[in-house]
Amino acid sequence: MSNAITPPKKQRSSNIELLRILTMLGVIILHYNNADIGGGLKYVQNGSLNFHFLNILESVFICAVDLFVLITGYFMINTQKRSLIKPFKLLVQVIAFNLMIFFLLIIIGKKAFTLHGLLGTLLPANYFVILYTALYFISPYINIAMKALNKKQLKYMIITLFLIFSVYAVAVDLLGEIKGDTILGLSSIGMYGSQNGYTIVNFAFMYTLGAYINICESDYIHISRIKLISYLAILVGVDSAWYLLFEYLHFCKGTAHSYLNPVVILMAVAVFFLFKKIDLGQNKVINTLAKGSFTVFLLHKEFLSRIRIESFVNKPLPILAAHILIAVIGIYLICWIVYFIYESITAPIYNLIEKKFPRVTYIVDSSITEKR
């Protein structure tokens, strides 16, 4: 998703670009397991070694989306400049790929042409893109509010947001899972609960958390790699055990792998700090591969439904592990090639637009706050 969340134009840090690649590979793994997409956890024999392996992978990578948004906040706290064409390009890319997939399926005989189907492809219905676009436009005002606070106030603000929009919200969802029904009107997120973090509330919180890390990084940078790895291992263990416990009790297991689960959010923080400690300099291969991650996000589901996951999840563990590894790397590389072709076609068009209409950016003035 690097198209969506790249920092202001400057030399890209390859450690963070590598983190983007790995988290995108993680998203593929999450959807490999997803019952409605790849079906890994749907088809695997419950309680088997493969089941536990997939569950651990799920817990390891469940913080991927939170990480993408956290990275955005970390870098964009330092700029009030926003491009009007950037979110437009994202929405156009969603529509372009919808159309490409729609007509490709018609050509190979997997789908019949209908006007209703065609009109549906013209809607950029992608939760990440829509929420990111909303966040992109409100983020300068979040920056102004954060810069008006001192470090102590920022710390209390983050703790307050964390308790209200993560701990409390998940506790309500947890009660609903135990009760066997959604508890209406009790959540701090919305009438029908937290939606597992698929909301602007969670996106705004993760952005704010990333911005806070940037501002107060010196207070936490002393944490060693060993401690971070230990914290991460404990958090993954807790999340995995949470899922297994609810599986055993026959409860709904959504909270274990919710994006606003406090365990998942803390995982994202630990992973980010861990990669900040890695010095890779400027690696052209990593930086180039990372550019295609948003295209991978848009297209990878089309491949997961065609790699016979149900035929591999109950094979011996080494075969399953090999299938996952080959699948995620292969899908990423194929999607990157599509990105390269798409970028080669569209880049000259967007360059021309930006030359013809130079005022496609705006800056939210923060001078009043800075004077205070």
Rank of each mutant, 00 (worst) to 15 (best):
S2K: 10
I5G: 14
R12V: 14
I16D: 04
L19S: 02
T23E: 00
H31A: 03
N33R: 06
N33H: 04
I37F: 08
G39C: 05
K42G: 00
K42E: 05
V44F: 03
N46E: 10
F53D: 09
N55V: 02
V60G: 03
A64C: 11
V65I: 14
I77Y: 05
R82K: 15
S83H: 10
P87H: 10
L104I: 15
K111V: 00
T114E: 06
L118A: 06
P124W: 05
A125I: 08
F128K: 10
L131R: 13
Y132C: 04
S139L: 09
P140S: 07
Y141C: 03
K147W: 06
K152V: 13
T160P: 01
L163I: 09
F165Q: 07
A169H: 04
D173C: 04
L175E: 01
G180Q: 12
D181W: 00
S194C: 06
Q195L: 02
N196H: 10
G197F: 04
A211E: 08
C216G: 01
D219F: 09
H222V: 00
S230Q: 05
S230I: 11
I234M: 13
L235V: 05
A241R: 04
W242N: 13
L245E: 01
F246W: 13
L249Q: 14
A256Q: 13
S258L: 01
L260Y: 09
P262V: 07
L266Q: 07
F273N: 03
L274E: 07
K276R: 15
K276L: 13
G281Q: 04
G281H: 03
K284D: 10
F294W: 04
T295N: 07
T295F: 00
V296Y: 01
V296D: 04
L298A: 03
I309H: 05
S311R: 14
F312C: 05
F312I: 09
L317Q: 03
A322Q: 07
H323V: 12
H323D: 04
L325E: 00
I331L: 05
L333R: 10
I341A: 14
I341F: 10
S344Q: 03
I349E: 03
L352S: 15
I353A: 13
K356H: 11
S366E: 15
K371Q: 07
